Amino acid sequence: MTATITFRPDEDTRLALDELTADGTPVSTVVRDALVAAAARHAKARLRAEAESLAADPDDRAEAAQVLRDLESLRAW
């Protein structure tokens, strides 16, 4: 999917773009890299929040403990 996205950078964004493109990196590359990095941070934050929610859930913790007890009998040593 190819799309053209237009935005109006504010002063902070303009300064950031100037810094990131000073070495000749195209603005489109900087923007693509920033979006991919932001999406990765977002996914990690979402997973972290889900893990914290499960860790705080007493029913889930009890079920996990039961699974570990059930698997203990299958250990080879």
Score class of each variant (00 low, 15 high):
A56H: 09
R69M: 07
R41K: 15
R14M: 07
F7W: 06
L20E: 15
D57W: 03
D70N: 14
I5N: 02
E52C: 00
R41L: 06
E72Q: 14
A43T: 13
E63M: 04
L35P: 06
A76N: 06
L74C: 06
E19W: 02
E52F: 00
D59N: 06
A43R: 15
S28I: 01
T21E: 03
R46Q: 13
L54D: 14
P58T: 14
T6D: 10
P9Y: 03
R14L: 09
V27Q: 14
T2M: 09
L54R: 15
E11I: 08
A39R: 13
A64S: 10
T13C: 13
W77L: 09
R14A: 13
R75D: 13
T25F: 02
R48M: 05
T4S: 11
L35I: 15
T2Y: 01
E50G: 08
D18E: 15
T4R: 12
A76C: 01
E52K: 10
T4H: 10
R32Q: 12
W77E: 14
R41I: 02
L71V: 04
D12L: 04
A16I: 03
T21K: 01
T21Q: 02
G24M: 11
R48C: 02
I5G: 00
A62M: 07
A38G: 12
D12W: 02
E11K: 04
A45V: 07
P9V: 06
A39P: 03
R75Y: 09
V30C: 07
E19I: 09
A3N: 09
E63C: 01
T25P: 04
E11S: 13
R32K: 06
A49I: 02
R61D: 00
L71C: 05
A34C: 03
